[in-house]
């Protein structure tokens, strides 16, 4: 049977509609779960980076309760900070940062000690980097390197540098082998947020 153009257009339209309906249905069906997952993870990220203890198996409503009782919010000239009192490290402030990665956006949280210069913790909680390579930015091994580092170099220049040949300065981190592009982009987005932090808290700095 010879099929004309009208048939082709009709076929494409019908197939497109069926696919769209199927996808919408699946999206509706999974939406509540996805939102809860995202919210629980958001709260978990903030609690983790602030060093607030919580039960990893807790439900999303329990996590939210812990968050509300332990974490305050503070705004310093347009930058939003999550504030919490740590039993040993004192008052900690965390703020979000984001920027483009290699395959998609990267989002993270950086948590600073009271001096607003020393890094207490960092978390890259959302990214689409290559698993096993750039994806390692969300591994504990990479993130733990930031602990205790300072967001300014010895001469006061703001920024954290990801280097290849041994991180020996107070603002240097060992980059990930095989993930140069991701490392460069991470360095860029950290520089951006650090410059904003330093500019806003210049007088209170160490």
């Amino acid at each position: 049977m010879k099929k004309g153009s009208a048939y082709t257009v009709l076929y494409a339209a019908v197939l497109g509609i069926i696919c769209a309906v199927a996808l919408t249905a699946v999206d509706r069906f999974t939406d509540a779960k996805k939102v809860a997952n995202a919210q629980a993870e958001e709260v978990q990220n903030i609690l983790t980076v602030l060093g607030v203890p919580f039960d990893a198996e807790a439900s999303s409503s329990d996590l939210l309760a812990v968050y509300e009782s332990m974490v305050g919010e503070e705004e310093i000239e347009g930058l939003e900070f999550f504030v919490s009192e740590h039993p040993e490290a004192g008052k900690l402030r965390a703020t979000r940062f984001h920027g483009p990665g290699l395959w998609g956006p990267i989002e993270g949280l950086i948590c600073l000690e009271e001096d607003m210069r020393t890094i207490f913790a960092i978390a890259f909680y959302r990214h689409e980097e290559t698993p096993g390579l750039g994806g390692e930015i969300s591994s504990a091994g990479f993130q733990d390197q930031f602990r205790g580092k300072v967001i300014q170099g010895p001469s006061g220049d703001p920024g954290i540098h990801l280097v290849n040949d041994g991180a020996d300065q107070i603002n240097e981190i060992d980059a990930i082998t095989g993930a140069t592009m991701t490392s460069d982009k991470v360095e860029d987005m950290l520089s951006e947020i650090i410059e904003r932090i330093v500019a806003r808290s210049g007088s209170s700095g160490a």
């Binding site: 199927a22 996808l23 699946v26 999206d27 999974t30 779960k33 996805k34 997952n37």
Partner: peptide, 9 residues
């Protein structure tokens, strides 16, 4: 996309 959504949920 269906598989991806289910995985995400």
């Amino acid at each position: 996309i269906i598989f991806d959504q289910i995985l995400k949920a």
